[in-house]
């Protein structure tokens, strides 16, 4: 088992002929991901790496009704419309890889996704891996490296940092464990899918016995984990590492006497996040490399 993506996932790539879309396409095909179609307006009728290209999501779905997930690789200014196009055509899972999406656009696309009952992972997501079943994005790089890090197993992995997603999956692997599903949720202010959304899914996944989390400063998403645990929405063990404690001690830490500090209600700093998580029973890794042993000891 796994969450979000599995062997039955059939992937559309929006922005398939762009530079990053091409790299992702090749990496995903090499891993065995079923990429069945791509969209680039004006390039319909072409094929790339054997995958047909269409002018629109509607046209792609007409020819490949089995599509159940889209990976979005369009430039930031086009991301909002690309996501709305996908969800309004009925695609329920959107992995938005694009970085640098305007916050106003993110908020709007999430509202549309909610209306259509779709889920957005991202923006700025590094991708999703359910080992040996499906990989969206470039996680792990080439197949040999991906196979070294990712193997089926009982641990769910959720990371805000794209660059640390491999490493977090790797400390789990180094502890002799595999992963059920590994998700890069992105580090933007507004996230399509946050830790708690995914914890609820991992709770229902019988294969997942515990979850490992990489968190960062800012926002309230880590704090919401503590609230979800208290409400018994998630009952399996969690090991978490929250990066950025050092930044609080730097001489140039900025005091925010404004609404940003208020809205987070004192919850934005890594120290506060760690405190809230620890009180809720989450195992806190003081250094990142301890995550694997911590979760191993808990499951």
């Amino acid at each position: 088992m796994s969450i979000l993506v599995n062997k039955d996932t059939r992937v559309l790539i929006q922005g398939i002929t762009g530079r990053t879309g091409q790299v992702a396409l090749r990496t995903m095909l090499e891993y065995g991901t079923k990429v069945v179609a791509g969209v680039t307006p004006g390039k319909g009728g072409q094929t790339t790496e054997g995958v047909p290209v269409y002018n629109s999501v509607h046209e792609a779905l007409k020819n490949h009704p089995e599509i159940n997930c889209t990976a979005v690789y369009v430039p930031p200014a086009a991301a909002k419309e690309a996501v709305i196009e996908a969800v309004s055509n009925g695609i329920k899972l959107v992995n938005l890889i694009t970085e640098g999406v305007a916050i106003q656009d993110t908020v709007q696309m999430i509202r549309y996704a909610n209306i259509y009952g779709a889920r957005i992972i991202g923006p700025s997501s590094i991708g999703i891996v359910s080992p040996k079943q499906c990989k969206i994005g470039v996680l792990g790089g080439i197949k040999d490296d991906t196979d070294k890090i990712y193997t089926p197993g009982p641990i769910g992995v959720i990371s805000k940092s794209g660059g640390m997603t491999n490493e977090t999956a790797w400390v789990v692997r180094s502890a002799g464990l595999g992963q059920s599903t590994v998700i890069g949720i992105g580090g933007d202010v507004i996230l399509g899918t946050d830790f708690v959304d995914l914890l609820r899914m991992f709770e229902k996944d019988p294969e997942t016995k515990g979850v490992v989390i990489f968190g960062e400063p800012g926002g309230t998403y880590e704090d919401k984990i503590a609230e979800a645990i208290k409400k018994k929405e998630f009952t399996k063990p969690i090991a978490a590492f929250i990066a950025g404690v050092f930044a609080e001690k730097l001489p140039h830490g900025t005091q925010f006497g404004h609404a940003g500090a208020l809205i987070e209600n004192g919850r934005g700093s890594p120290t506060e996040k760690i405190k809230a998580l620890r009180e809720a029973g989450v195992l806190i890794a003081e250094t990142h490399d301890k995550l694997g042993e911590l979760i191993k000891g808990a499951i």
Binding site: S159, G162, G163, M164, G187, A243, F246, D289
Partner: peptide
Amino acid sequence: AAGGGGSMAAMDALIL
């Protein structure tokens, strides 16, 4: 260090 999240994790580890 390489990477935003990685550099934060590494700085924390070094100071610790």
